[in-house]
């Protein structure tokens, strides 16, 4: 059956559009398209980034190990079982996890929406596929990639911890750690996505998008921290960074009681608003751009 789209302006009234989207162009078709794209893109990206994924899975526990061995404080925690572990260091480890998954997010976004995919998208745009489905599918690919890596990393860490010390994280703690890690990664995903779209609009290479993201996430917080610690005493400056707000949320979730609820709510609002808002802007740029 051939799909008849409303072809003239006159035909594009509400009833015709309603009929078209409900009966002709059903949501099932959209979901099928997205599923086909995700299946292919996921396979492609995992194959492209297989070494990076493997590296992340090894790196995360390795860094945590090094951290634990290097510091007396951490070693002390690992010797004293799950209770002490939960009280003192789960949030610290989650923040390290966030950092690694953010790097993973950067790589995934650059690959899915960046140069490689932009070239392949020229072909996608010539296919009978809705542009919004292309965006959704690529975004979902990044999301699934991050989720799987996040889950694997947390579980790998738990398994190593269990083998080494005989203790294991509780399911709730694993879940909380995973959610927090993913939240940080999604923020990095959307910000990188926005800069990739901006770079494409101005005909720059998408790899340039890595620079503002790195500045926002790592270089600015580091500089602020450095300046605050050694030059001027302005501790409030650090509160203007993403890393501060992510830390507040993570600490609140994993060490309830230490952070004030108001501070947590503020941080959650800031992070969620930026995560959602910037994604919408990136999507709008993607949809409005001519190919």
């Amino acid at each position: 059956m051939t799909v008849i789209e409303p072809s003239t302006k006159k035909e594009r009234n509400f009833l015709v559009r309603f009929y078209y989207y409900v009966f002709e162009r059903s949501i099932v078709k959209d979901l099928r398209e997205i599923a086909i794209l995700v299946r292919f893109e996921f396979k492609r990206i995992i194959l492209t980034l297989k070494f990076f994924v493997a590296l992340s899975l090894i790196l995360l526990p390795a860094i945590i190990f090094l951290n634990a061995i290097a510091s007396e404080y951490e070693a002390f925690i690992l010797d004293h079982g799950v209770q002490v572990f939960q009280q003192f260091s789960a949030d610290g480890y989650t923040i390290i996890g966030q950092f690694l998954l953010q790097m993973m997010a950067l790589m995934l976004v650059l690959d899915a929406f960046g140069k490689t995919a932009n070239d392949s998208m020229k072909r996608y745009f010539a296919l009978p596929v809705r542009k919004i489905n292309i965006f959704a599918a690529h975004y979902l690919t990044v999301f699934f990639g991050l989720s799987i890596t996040g889950v694997l990393a947390v579980l790998t860490f738990d398994a190593i911890l269990w083998v080494w010390t005989g203790i294991s994280l509780t399911f709730v703690l694993i879940l909380k750690a995973f959610i927090m890690t993913l939240l940080g990664a999604l923020l990095a995903t959307n910000i990188t996505l926005f800069f990739v779209m901006l770079a494409h609009s101005f005909k720059f290479s998408s790899s340039i998008a890595i620079i503002p993201t790195l500045f926002l996430f790592y270089i600015i917080p580091f500089l602020v921290n450095f300046v605050t610690a050694f030059v001027f005493s302005v501790p409030e400056a650090y509160e203007w960074t993403f890393m501060y707000h992510l830390t507040v949320i993570t600490k609140y979730f994993l060490k309830t009681g230490e952070i004030e609820t108001l501070a947590f709510r503020n941080s959650l609002l800031i992070i969620c608003l930026i995560t959602v808002g910037i994604k919408q802007i990136a999507k709008a740029i993607f949809l409005l751009k001519e190919n």
Binding site: T2, K122, L127, P128, V129
Partner: peptide, 14 residues
Amino acid sequence: QSKLTIKKLIGYLP
């Protein structure tokens, strides 16, 4: 106005 219908009719070799 009928981009999807048209793209179904066309094969493109860039």
